[in-house]
Amino acid sequence: MNFIFRKAVTLIALAPCFCNGQQTPFSGNWNIDLRSAEERKQNVDCGSATFELLQVGQRISGNHYMSTPRCGRVNEGGPETVKGIAVGSTAMLVVTSGRNGAIVLGRAKLNHGMLQWEATEEIRSGEPEGDSPLILSKGKLVRSKK
Rank of each mutant, 00 (worst) to 15 (best):
A13Q: 06
Q22P: 00
Q42E: 14
R143E: 15
L115A: 00
I123N: 02
A15F: 08
G21M: 05
D131H: 04
T120E: 09
Q22L: 11
S36C: 09
G57R: 08
G47P: 11
P128D: 15
S48Q: 14
F5T: 06
C19V: 05
E80V: 05
R59N: 14
V56E: 14
L11Q: 09
S48P: 01
R107C: 10
V9L: 12
F18W: 10
R143W: 15
E39W: 09
A49M: 11
E76W: 12
F5M: 07
V94R: 05
G77M: 09
K145H: 13
S125G: 01
V9D: 10
A119G: 06
R73N: 11
R40N: 15
E76H: 08
E38C: 01
F3P: 01
L54Q: 10
S36F: 12
S125Q: 09
V87E: 10
L53Q: 04
T120N: 02
H112V: 12
V74N: 02
P69E: 13
Q42N: 13
S132K: 02
L141E: 10
D33Y: 13
R40W: 12
G21L: 04
L141M: 10
Q23E: 15
S48A: 13
V87F: 06
F3N: 04
V87K: 00
S61I: 04
I103M: 07
S144R: 09
I4K: 00
K109S: 13
V74G: 00
T10Q: 06
H64M: 11
T96F: 05
E76Y: 12
T81Y: 08
G126E: 09
M114I: 02
F3K: 03
R70Q: 13
M92S: 07
R40K: 14
C17A: 14
M66C: 03
I32E: 10
V56F: 04
W117A: 02
G98S: 06
